[in-house]
């Protein structure tokens, strides 16, 4: 899972000639593909953009546990239950890596989580869609993790060292989740009864467009992309990645024997890519604004978890302090 629309605070990209000496040296390092590390000088706006992007990415991992948590108590076999539990555990782990990477930039995880809870920070729009049947667990793995991987594979080469290294670890596990998700669907299509095949198609119908929206606004509507690309935080534009995802996903869809809810989807021989229909951008922006199907429930769940758990965290701190005092006295 990942960040979808990140404000960089700059609408135009400076040329080397317009930069001061520090900034110029920084940009030359980026251009030479040398990783930026925590202690290196970096422009304030680079730092802030990365904090926004990595925290958004971390928040997405954590909120992303909820649509799956919705089915973990209802998984149909012990094997499927184990797989889903392992996946949820991995997601919590990814959230932890990412918050750590973010903290190397001087941000504080509790403050960033507070921004999420107060609606000032975003998370991936996809998790605002409900999971309504078991096939959603397959489709989330295949499509949602699939889309995340297409975005994250290039992020392994992102210019900020700690983020890039986090992505290398995360990608390995995500690829595994994606294969598992696809296998859930393939099994239902090949060995399932009609009701199961209907579940698979229904899950794809509901999750297809929201998955395409995970790549963010179209390039024409992404004023922040140019700066992120110049800084090599992003390595490809939203539309490039979306196209890549569609091109690699359609053959997998055909192998399942399913269809996508897009009458305009067609192979374009000349371009060597699939053409596809227009995304409902109005829906996308409404979901990002907090008006999607589950935005309210997702944030409420996370806020409650943190509020209800405050006494537990306080107890842990109080106990650690007591222990420390005892050791100091001994």
């Amino acid at each position: 899972m990942y960040a979808q629309q990140v404000e960089t605070g700059t609408k135009t990209v400076k040329s080397l000639a317009e930069m001061g000496p520090e900034e110029k040296a920084f940009q030359e390092k980026i251009d030479a593909e040398i990783k930026i590390e925590a202690k290196n000088w970096m422009p304030d706006s680079y730092r802030k953009t990365l904090i926004r992007q990595i925290s958004q990415h971390a928040h997405s991992e954590i909120v992303g546990m909820l649509p799956e948590g919705n089915w973990v108590t209802r998984a149909p076999t012990l094997k499927r239950k184990l797989q889903l539990m392992a996946k949820i555990q991995d997601e919590a782990g990814h959230g932890l890596y990412l918050y750590s990477a973010m903290e190397t930039l001087g941000a504080d995880r509790d403050e960033e989580i507070e921004k999420l809870h107060s609606g000032r920070a975003k998370y991936s729009s996809i998790f605002n869609y409900p999971t309504l049947n078991w096939a959603d667990m397959g489709a989330v793995g295949w499509l949602v993790d699939g889309a995340a991987i297409v975005n994250q594979v290039p992020l392994q080469r992102t210019s900020y060292g700690p983020y890039s290294r986090a992505m290398i670890r995360v990608c390995k596990e995500e690829s595994f989740h994606q294969r598992q998700g696809y296998e859930i669907l393939l099994h239902m299509m090949r060995h399932g009864i009609q009701a199961q095949k209907d579940m698979v198609q229904d899950a794809i119908n509901r999750l297809w467009w929201p998955s395409l929206m995970m790549f963010g606004p179209s390039d024409a509507e992404s004023p922040n992309s140019a700066q992120s690309l110049a800084w090599k935080i992003k390595r490809h534009t939203n539309d490039e990645l979306r196209q890549r995802f569609i091109d690699q996903t359609i053959p997998q869809l055909e192998l399942l024997g399913c269809t996508v809810p897009d009458p305009d989807l067609k192979w374009n021989e000349e371009r060597g890519h699939y053409d596809f229909g227009e995304i409902q951008w109005e829906e996308f922006y409404e979901v990002l604004k907090g008006n999607g199907p589950c935005n309210r429930e997702r944030l409420e769940t996370r806020r409650n978890a943190i509020q209800d758990g405050a006494w537990v965290r306080e107890a842990a701190v109080a106990h650690a302090n007591k222990k420390q005092k005892q050791q100091a006295a001994a």
């Binding site: 954590i62 909820l66 973990v72 949820i88 555990q89 919590a92 996370r302 758990g309």
Partner: peptide
């Protein structure tokens, strides 16, 4: 499993699932 997404800290999300 019922605790998913509701634990008092991220470390506990992992711990309980584990």
């Amino acid at each position: 499993c019922e605790w998913t997404g509701r634990a008092p800290a991220l470390e506990e999300e992992m711990g309980m699932m584990n």
